[in-house]
Write a protein that binds this DNA or RNA. Structure first.
Length: 273
DNA sequence: CGGTGGACCTGCTGGC
DNA sequence: TGCCAGCAGGTCCACC
C-alpha cells in the first residue's frame, strides 16, 4: 500500500498526537501478520512512554522509553491511526494500544502483509529488517553519481531496479512509474545502460516526485489514510500511473501498461527511452 | 551471483 | 443479481 511519501505523512501526522503519551494498555488479535508479534508483546510496551516517531524506508519506528523501538510496516493494506477516544473494534484490527490521554493507536491490516516488531534501539541497525536496506532517496548522498555507480553491470530493467530496497528504499510501484516518466527514461531500459546525465536526471526525478507527494500528504487510491484517518491527494497529480490508454500529457501519445516482475508499469513509449 | 516467478492475504471491480 | 477472473501502494524465498 504505502510508499515512502505515505509512510512519511503518517509519521508526521502521528508525532504530535503520540509523543509524550504513555501506553497504558495493549490488545491484539491472534491473526498472523507477516511476522508473528513478539513474545510478551504486551509486557514489552505496556507502561512505556512514547519518545519519538521516525521513518526508515517504509518502516515506522516508534521510539519508546528505555531504548525500546516498536517497528510497524504497513505492507499493502495496513493503517496506523491515532484515535482521540477508543474506537469500535473493526474487522482486521490487529494491534490496539490505549494511551493515557484516553486515545487509542490502532494497527489495522486486511491483507496482513504488514508487521509489528519490537527491538532495542542499539540493535536496530543490525535487525534483519534493516540490515540490508539501501540508501534513503531524500538524503544528500542520493544523487546521479550514486545511481551511476550502483547501476554498473546491472541488466535489471530500471523500473524493477528502482524498487530494489537493497539499492534504494521507499520507491514502490506508483512512484517508480512516475519517476521514470519525469526522467524520460524507459522502465525497460537496463539499469546498467544509464549514462551519467541520465543517472542524474533519474536521481533528481525520484527526489522531486517523492517530495511533491509528501507535500500533498501522499496518495490515496483504495484505502490509504494518514494518521488522522484522512486522505492524501497526490493521486490527482499522477501523470502515468493508472493512466493506461489516456493521452500522455506531454505528447498526447497513449499511455501503455506493461507487466514487469508481475507488477503493472505505466509509461509513454514516445517520451521515455 | 542475477533474474524470475510464486507465495503470502483479503477485498473490490468489471465483464459476462 | 451473481459469479469469477483479475487486480491492488510490499516483501521474501525458492528455483533456475
Amino acid at each position: 500500500m504505502p510508499e515512502l511519501p505515505e509512510v512519511e505523512t503518517i509519521c508526521r501526522g502521528l508525532a504530535p498526537l503520540l509523543i509524550g503519551q504513555k501506553i497504558s494498555g495493549v490488545g491484539h488479535s491472534e491473526k498472523k501478520l507477516r511476522m508473528p508479534l513478539p513474545v510478551d508483546f504486551q509486557g514489552k510496551i505496556t507502561g512505556k512512554r512514547i519518545i519519538n516517531i521516525s521513518r526508515r524506508a517504509k518502516y515506522i519506528q516508534i521510539v519508546l522509553e528505555d531504548e525500546i523501538v516498536m517497528v510497524v510496516h504497513l505492507g499493502m493494506s495496513g493503517k496506523l491511526i491515532a484515535y482521540p477516544a477508543p474506537p469500535i473494534r473493526l474487522k482486521h484490527d490487529h494491534v490496539w494500544m490505549q494511551l493515557d490521554n484516553g486515545g487509542e493507536l490502532v494497527f489495522n491490516d486486511p491483507r496482513r502483509f504488514g508487521l509489528v516488531a519490537i527491538t532495542d534501539a542499539s540493535a536496530l541497525p543490525r535487525h534483519a529488517l534493516f540490515a540490508h536496506l539501501g540508501i534513503e532517496p531524500l538524503s544528500a548522498e542520493y544523487d546521479g553519481d550514486f545511481l551511476y555507480k550502483q547501476s554498473r553491470g546491472k541488466k535489471t530493467p530500471l523500473k524493477h531496479w528502482l524498487m530494489d530496497a537493497r539499492v534504494m528504499v521507499g520507491v514502490g510501484n506508483i512512484y517508480a512509474s512516475e519517476s521514470l516518466f519525469r526522467a524520460q527514461l524507459s522502465p525497460e531500459k537496463p539499469a546498467g545502460s544509464l549514462n551519467k546525465p541520465e543517472a542524474k536526471r533519474l536521481a533528481q526525478a525520484v527526489k522531486a516526485i517523492l517530495e511533491a507527494a509528501i507535500a500533498s500528504g501522499g496518495s490515496t487510491l483504495r484505502d490509504y489514510v494518514g494518521a488522522h484517518g484522512d486522505a492524501g491527494y497526490f493521486q490527482h497529480h499522477f501523470v502515468v500511473y493508472g493512466k493506461e490508454g489516456k493521452p500522455c500529457e506531454a505528447c498526447g501519445h497513449s499511455i501503455k501498461r506493461i507487466i514487469q516482475s508481475g507488477r503493472s508499469t505505466f509509461y509513454c513509449t514516445q517520451c521515455q527511452h
